[in-house]
């Protein structure tokens, strides 16, 4: 699998000792690589150069990665896809995914990890979600609502470009664990969202109107659900990758 050939990639990192070997690596994988030392320079560059993916550090002098992510997603909800790399950030995963980051990679990481992550987020979603998880024992969650629309209106299910928020009282899992979900609706165009994913964050308490529950990144969706999720989120120009609220 070499889906990176010909991809246009921007690396935003203030440490040249890290930025340069990353550039060399992605060039060797067939990408056209651009480099920027902070978010401000990166955003200017993104206006001139069409990009497929931006890999950005969060803390940088002269323009941080979160600001860059917001700016990029304000211009276009879908592209370029953005991956944040972070040493330890003031930004929670929940916020980062809500702002539209497609992946968050913690430092230190190795070249294989970052390569795999970029390959994954550049794979079209229908393809990305087509392989069922094999032989993995995982927690199951089954919920039924009257319709997707009412579930969304009640903030019980929120759909993002790469995952969903589920309001649930019973949480028998931890972030990073796989989970299979069976969400059924009594009426409407969409009668089920079924598949499996990785729990990315858990909110233990209701915070005002924001319900407790968990953020799940899709790993596999049934064929019907795959088509539905892509169609709906493109139609609504959904910005969050996994919505938080």
């Amino acid at each position: 699998m070499n889906s990176l050939v010909g991809k246009r990639l921007l690396i935003v990192e203030d440490e040249p000792d890290l930025r340069e070997p990353l550039a060399v690596e992605f060039q060797s994988l067939g990408c056209t690589v651009f480099q920027a030392e902070n978010g401000t320079i990166a955003f200017e560059l993104s206006k001139r150069e069409p990009l497929d993916v931006v890999i950005s550090d969060i803390r940088m002098p002269g323009g941080d990665g979160v600001e860059l992510l917001k700016n990029l997603k304000a211009s276009n909800y879908a592209f370029p896809v953005v991956m944040l790399i972070t040493g330890f950030s003031d930004l929670s995963k929940e916020e980062a995914y809500h702002l539209g980051a497609e992946a968050i990679l913690g430092k230190p990481f190795d070249l294989d990890e970052i390569g795999d992550a970029v390959r994954r987020i550049l794979t079209p979603r229908e393809v990305r979600w087509s392989v069922p998880a094999s032989n993995v024992v995982m927690e199951q969650i089954a919920l039924t609502f009257s319709s997707l629309t009412t579930a969304i209106d009640d903030s019980k299910v929120l759909l993002g470009r790469g995952g969903l928020f589920l309001h649930t009282d019973v949480v028998k899992t931890t972030p990073g664990k796989s989970l299979s979900f069976h969400i059924r609706f009594s009426e409407g165009d969409i009668l089920a969202i079924e598949g499996s994913g990785i729990v990315r964050w858990i909110r233990q308490e209701n915070v005002g109107n924001v319900r407790k529950g968990m953020g799940i990144e899709f790993q596999y969706l049934t064929e019907k659900a795959r088509r539905d999720v892509v169609r709906i989120t493109d139609l609504l120009k959904t910005r969050p990758y996994i919505p938080s609220h």
Binding site: L18, E25, G87, F88, S89, D90, K107, P108
Partner: peptide
């Protein structure tokens, strides 16, 4: 602590990536 974790993880990333290369 957060800042310090960042300051340690960043050079660790440099070491890992350079060694990979």
């Amino acid at each position: 602590a957060g800042g310090i974790a960042h300051e340690i993880n960043s050079p660790l990333a440099i070491i890992t990536v350079r060694a990979n290369q």
